[in-house]
Amino acid sequence: MPTYTVPETAAVLSVSHEHLYRQVRLGLFPALKFNGRYVIPAQAVEDLLATAASAAGGLDLAEWAASWQAGGAA
């Protein structure tokens, strides 16, 4: 499974890495923790961008993350 670091993901999403780390720690963005280091599944980033592109009126990140972590993109 390809992964991104938090700073790489933040750059792709045009947000600060501090903001993304906060979202990850709060459980609002999917991540895996290996030896104290977070990595983001590339599929999560791809699914988020695809869902956001087709969402009329915006996308609630918390709702999307909960759906993604439950087994499928919103």
Rank of each mutant, 00 (worst) to 15 (best):
T3H: 11
P7A: 11
P7D: 10
E8L: 03
E8P: 06
A10T: 09
A10E: 11
A10V: 08
A11L: 11
A11P: 00
S14D: 14
S16L: 09
S16Q: 09
E18Y: 12
E18G: 07
H19S: 11
V24M: 02
V24N: 03
V24E: 05
G27M: 02
G27L: 02
L28C: 11
F29T: 04
F29G: 04
P30T: 10
P30W: 05
A31H: 06
K33R: 15
K33S: 14
F34H: 14
N35C: 02
R37P: 00
R37L: 11
Y38R: 08
V39Y: 11
P41E: 02
P41A: 05
P41W: 04
A42Q: 08
Q43Y: 01
Q43P: 00
V45I: 15
E46F: 02
L49N: 03
A52F: 00
A52N: 10
A53H: 09
A53M: 07
S54A: 10
S54K: 08
A55T: 15
A55Q: 13
G57Q: 04
G58S: 01
L59N: 07
D60M: 07
A62D: 08
W64P: 10
W64G: 07
A65V: 06
A66E: 13
A66M: 04
A66K: 13
S67A: 12
Q69A: 08
A70Y: 00
A70V: 01
G71D: 05
A73M: 04
